[in-house]
Design a binder for these strands. Structure first.
Lengths: 202, 202
DNA sequence: TTTATACTAAAATCCGATTATAGTCTAAAG
DNA sequence: CTTTAGACTATAATCGGATTTTAGTATAAA
């Protein structure tokens, strides 16, 4: 089958899963909506779960892809870190299925889907690690244990996710995120933590 | 009724809710286990939900109380911040009902219980704010916007909770938390972020 | 290879009957 | 005046069996 057609199936499935959830989406209807035979779907994916996982995977890949793109556009490590966070949170609302995992009452939280969610987390941590390493090499950051630092920051960023997804007042949380970046970059104790003029998020 | 008896009812309820959950705990059995008449419970609490909320409230109060105690034992603001985080995570496993809210599939997540959970979060943020204010006044911290800073840190700490509760490898996450504290206190950019000798968590 | 269709076995839904339980009430005991 | 045991009700949960949906397979034709 052409890659194009396969992507189309995933896209249709993505919409259906986002609207109805895993349980209430059925393959007969998906086949009809995607204008392929049911057998074709089973030929390619093998099971309903696999279709669902392919959707989650695509959503995760999109987030990672967008983050990497945005980082490439920045030259300085601190700004790369800021770009990562901004892009991540901008992309999140598009990954409806992946993020409903966090919010929903476990409706469709099972080992494989959780694995994809965790995988996204650890990929983010890896990217953070790359940024920190570059920052260290170029003299921007001073970090004793880069692996610990990147994981710590990964976890900390996670703390903003739930409310970002649920709240009306996204702007305000954006504000907190901005400030959080300032804090981890400059620290509470450094005298210039007052000045948000250099690495500021607009 | 004596306060003592009332507390005993809450304690028994706390164990039953922790073991069986809100739905599978029934008031007849609770009355029996707590050795009071069912009417007494309804006299005091008015409804099953109110009993449950009283349990959640008590768990939240215990966490806040322990945090405040631990902070009082520290003299320096940075150490107070560290004490807050350490105590919070040490106390968390005791608050079984409150924390199952995070993990469970919404089984017993309804507006009132979420409100208590959020209340705990904002109380933590207030305490952080107090610490930051003291740290600013005494020249330890340099923070432009204390309110933003305390909320940011509150959210960031939240990011460690889920994995702390779920994972086998609590030590490792402890490690991340330690490092996280180092980062926010000293910042990625400050040259002494290497040295973890002063404000170190043992 | 894809498609339409038919097929099966397992799961979900439905529904009426039964049971369990939240919450009220009362009368007696402390 | 409060607590208690027990009776009581109305609603919600459970159960079991019949029915329907649906995941997944098989087949034959395009």
């Amino acid at each position: 089958m052409k890659q194009e057609k396969l992507n189309y199936i995933i896209d249709v499935a993505r919409n259906m899963f986002a609207r109805y959830g895993l349980r209430k989406t059925n393959i007969d209807e998906l086949a009809h909506m995607a204008r392929v035979a049911k057998a074709t779907i089973y030929n390619y994916f093998g099971s309903k779960d696999s279709v669902y996982l392919a959707v989650l995977k695509k959503e995760a890949d999109e987030i990672i892809g967008a983050i990497l793109d945005s980082i490439d556009k920045e030259a300085l490590p601190p700004e790369k870190l800021i770009a990562l966070v901004k892009t991540k949170f901008n992309q999140m609302p598009k990954a409806l299925n992946l993020l409903n995992l966090e919010i929903d009452g476990a409706e469709n939280r099972y080992p494989d889907s959780i694995a994809i969610r965790n995988d996204l987390f650890w990929k983010e941590v890896e990217i953070i690690q790359d940024i920190l390493e570059e920052g260290l090499a170029k003299g921007f950051f001073y970090i004793k244990n880069i692996m610990l630092a990147s994981k710590s920051i990964g976890y900390a960023i996670r703390g903003f996710e739930r409310d970002w997804l649920l709240f009306d007042s996204r702007d305000r949380i954006d504000h907190y995120l901005d400030y959080f970046l300032n804090i981890i970059i400059k620290g509470l104790m450094s005298a210039n933590s007052n000045k948000t003029d250099r690495f500021v998020i607009d």
